[in-house]
Amino acid sequence: MTNPTRGWVSWSSGKDAAFALHTVRETRAVDVVGLLTTMNAATRRVPVHAVPHALVQAQADALGLPLHTVDLPWPCPNDIYEARTNEALTAAGRAGVERLVFGDLHLRDVREYRERSIADSGVAPMFPLWGRPTAELAAEMLRCGLRAVVTCVDPAQAPAELAGRWFDEAFLDGLPDGVDPCGERGEFHTFVVDGPGFTVPVDVAVGPPVERDGFVVAELAAR
């Protein structure tokens, strides 16, 4: 009997990463043994999503997986991002990790960048959700019990008042034309509080939206 392929999930704290984790577990394509997330070293938050480290750690604990963080300056030049990420992945590869699972859906330039940026790490990228229609995918996420809150909105692409909303049927039904149901073009980002694989929900308080670095962010805190 061959040993299963060991992998990490590139963990943004959002719904796409969570559903990619669920997918590879369901299909047994990868034995997921850890989560990898980048962190703004100054604020201790996930870049763009603006989720505090403590809440990401709570997700990892609920999923029963170790959390591996890569601390980054902000703003972060690509060369520093790539060097630090590759350092973490090279160490993971020496420990037997062979795949890094991404939740990307259909942006070819993003996929090609990820493939190129970790090519020398010894860990191969994997895209289990690639090419799936996003409206169908969003509906499937809800059917499987995934619960997420919108943490960040790009007001140049979507209404600012979406920040702090729950990612549910009412949210999807009310999206304006041109906004991707999964926010794949960066219209919005989410934080998952419950879903497949979670042993307990992550209890969060959702604060009022604030403007930060050109985005509208719903402040999250543990309860």
Rank of each mutant, 00 (worst) to 15 (best):
N78W: 13
L137E: 03
D31N: 15
A58W: 05
R99N: 07
E161M: 07
A54N: 08
V123Q: 08
V97H: 13
Q157R: 14
A119E: 14
L175W: 07
P181Q: 12
D61P: 05
T151V: 10
P75L: 00
P208T: 04
T90Q: 09
D16I: 04
T43I: 00
R165D: 11
D177C: 07
M39L: 13
F19R: 05
F198A: 01
D203S: 09
T90H: 07
P201F: 14
G122F: 13
L35M: 04
H22L: 01
A54E: 15
M141Y: 11
R212W: 13
C182V: 08
V200M: 06
M126W: 07
M141A: 11
G122D: 08
P159V: 10
V46A: 06
T43V: 09
R212Y: 13
L36R: 15
L36T: 09
G145R: 02
P73C: 05
L175R: 10
G34W: 02
D180Y: 01
H189D: 09
G178S: 09
A50T: 05
G7Y: 00
A158L: 06
R165M: 14
T69K: 03
G195F: 01
R116P: 01
S117Y: 06
W8S: 00
A124Y: 00
V70A: 06
T2E: 10
P181T: 09
D79A: 14
P196Y: 08
E26Q: 15
P201S: 02
L137H: 03
C152A: 13
A170I: 01
R116V: 00
V51L: 02
V51Y: 01
H49G: 11
P4S: 04
A95Q: 15
T43Q: 15
P75S: 03
E219S: 07
Y81F: 09
F102G: 00
C76S: 14
A42E: 14
E136W: 09
R108L: 03
R108Q: 14
E161N: 15
R44H: 13
R44C: 03
N86P: 03
A205F: 06
L72D: 01
A119N: 08
V150E: 04
A119H: 00
P181N: 13
A88W: 04
R111S: 12
P77G: 13
D213H: 06
A60C: 01
Y113I: 10
P75G: 04
R212A: 11
R45V: 10
P181W: 07
M39T: 10
A42T: 12
L63I: 08
F188V: 02
H53V: 06
G64H: 04
V192S: 04
L21Q: 08
A17V: 04
G186I: 12
H49I: 06
S13D: 07
A17M: 04
H68V: 15
R84T: 08
P201E: 15
A91G: 09
T23M: 11
T151H: 04
R84Q: 12
P133D: 13
L175T: 11
R111I: 08
I80P: 02
C76M: 06
A222Q: 14
L55V: 12
G164I: 10
G96V: 12
A42F: 12
Y81H: 03
V46H: 12
T37E: 09
D120A: 09
W11E: 07
D168R: 14
A119F: 00
D104F: 12
L142W: 05
P75Y: 08
D168K: 02
F167C: 02
